[in-house]
Simulated assay, not measured.
Amino acid sequence: MAKVTKRAVLVGCNYPLTKNRLYGCMEDVRAIKRVIMDKLGFQESNIQVLTDDDHDGARGSSSLLPTGANIKAALNDMANKAKAGDVLFFYFSGHGTAIPVLEAGKPFRQDEAIVPCDLNLVTNVDFRRLVNRLPKGASFTILSDSCQTGALIDKAKTGASKKRKPQENSPMAKGKAKAKFLGFEFIHQAIIAAAGFPQDGGNTISQAAHKIFGKDVSFKFHPHYIGGAFELDPLQEDEGILLSGFEADEASYDIVSDDRAFGAFTDAVVTLLKDHTSAKISNGELAAGAAEALQKQGYEQSPCLYCSKNNTHQDFLGGFA
C-alpha cells in the first residue's frame, strides 16, 4: 500500500494597522497547527503557514505573508505534490466576502471568497479549479473560520443546524465579538483606487484587479472567465469537504476575552479534537460537536458541513494518528 501523506496550508489574517483589524486569527493558526500535529499525524515539514501579524515577532522566518498570490502558490504546491490517497487540508481564519453576480436574465447570486492581506481575493472559482485537478483518491478539506465562505466548494450543506436565539450574556451582547466579514463594496473601491482608476469611471473590479495583480489575480476576475464559466477548462462538480463556522444568515466571530483572542469556531474545533477520546471522529461528528459547544457557550453561530453524503461519515483529515 502506498504511503499516505498529510499536507496542510494554514492561513491567518489579522489585517494589522487597518480599520478592519482582527485579533485572534494568528492564534487560531497556532492552535490548529498544534492539534493537527499532536492528534492527526501531520508532520511540521508538510505544513505551510501564512500569517500577517508580527506584533510580537511570532510569525517567524518560515511564515509567508498571506497575500492572494502566496496563498494560491501554497495551495498549488500542495496540489502538485498530491498522490492518490493523500490528505490535503486548507485552514483559513480571517475575513470573508460575498461578490455580487449580475447576469442578464438570471437570478441574482453571490460568489464567495476569502480576503487575503492584500485584498487579492481567493474565490470559490479558485478552490473549485484546485479540487478539480487533484488525483483521484486524494481528499481536500477546508476549515474556514470566516464569514461568507459556505460556497467555496460545489457541495450542498449536509444535515441541519439548530437555530438559536441570541443570549443576553453572550460574547456578542458584551461587545467582545467582531464578525469576520469585509463588505465587497469596500474591497471594490479599494482595488479601483489602488489601480489608479476614478471611482466613477465605469471601470470594473476585474479590470482593476487584473491591472494590479496580473497573472496572480483570481480566476474569477480572469479575462477567460465569462458568464460564470471558463471559455477553456470548464469546472466540474468537486469532491471537496468544507467545514464552515456559520449559517448563511449568521457570522463567524473573532473574540477578545480575558486577554485572549481567538475565533469562536476554531476554538470549539480545537477543544473538541484535543478532548476527543475515541479513535476517530467523522466530519459530520466534528461539525455537530462544534455546533453544540458553541451553543453552550452562547455564541450565535451554527457551524455547517458541505460535502457529499459519503464524506459526511469519513474520518476528519484521515483519522487520528
Rank of each mutant, 00 (worst) to 15 (best):
M1C: 04
M1P: 14
A2E: 12
V4Y: 13
T5D: 14
P16I: 02
T18G: 07
R21H: 04
R34T: 02
V35T: 06
I36V: 06
K39D: 06
Q43C: 04
Q43L: 03
S45P: 03
N46P: 11
I47F: 14
V49K: 04
D53C: 00
R59L: 13
G60T: 11
S63C: 11
T67E: 09
G68R: 08
K72W: 07
N80W: 14
A82S: 13
A84L: 13
A84Y: 13
G85M: 08
D86A: 03
V87W: 13
F90W: 09
G96M: 07
I99T: 02
P100D: 10
V101E: 11
K106E: 09
Q110A: 08
Q110C: 09
Q110W: 12
A113H: 02
C117W: 08
N120L: 10
N120H: 07
V122K: 02
V122P: 04
N124R: 05
F127D: 01
L130P: 00
N132Y: 07
A138V: 05
A138K: 06
A138Y: 10
A138S: 13
S139L: 15
S139M: 12
D145T: 07
C147Q: 04
T149W: 05
A156G: 14
T158V: 15
R164Q: 15
L182Y: 06
L182P: 11
F184R: 13
F186K: 10
I187L: 14
Q189T: 11
I192C: 03
G196N: 09
P198S: 01
P198T: 00
Q199D: 07
G201Q: 01
I205V: 05
I205Q: 00
Q207T: 00
H210I: 01
H210F: 08
P223F: 05
H224E: 01
I226M: 06
G228F: 10
D233V: 00
P234Y: 00
Q236T: 07
I241S: 08
L242S: 03
L243A: 08
E247T: 07
E250S: 13
D254C: 01
I255V: 14
S257G: 01
S257K: 06
G263C: 06
F265W: 03
F265R: 04
T266D: 08
V269D: 07
L272F: 11
L273P: 03
S278K: 10
E285R: 06
A287Q: 14
A288W: 12
A290W: 02
L294G: 09
L294M: 03
Q295V: 08
Q295M: 11
P303A: 13
P303C: 09
Y306I: 09
C307K: 10
T312D: 15
D315K: 13
G319T: 08
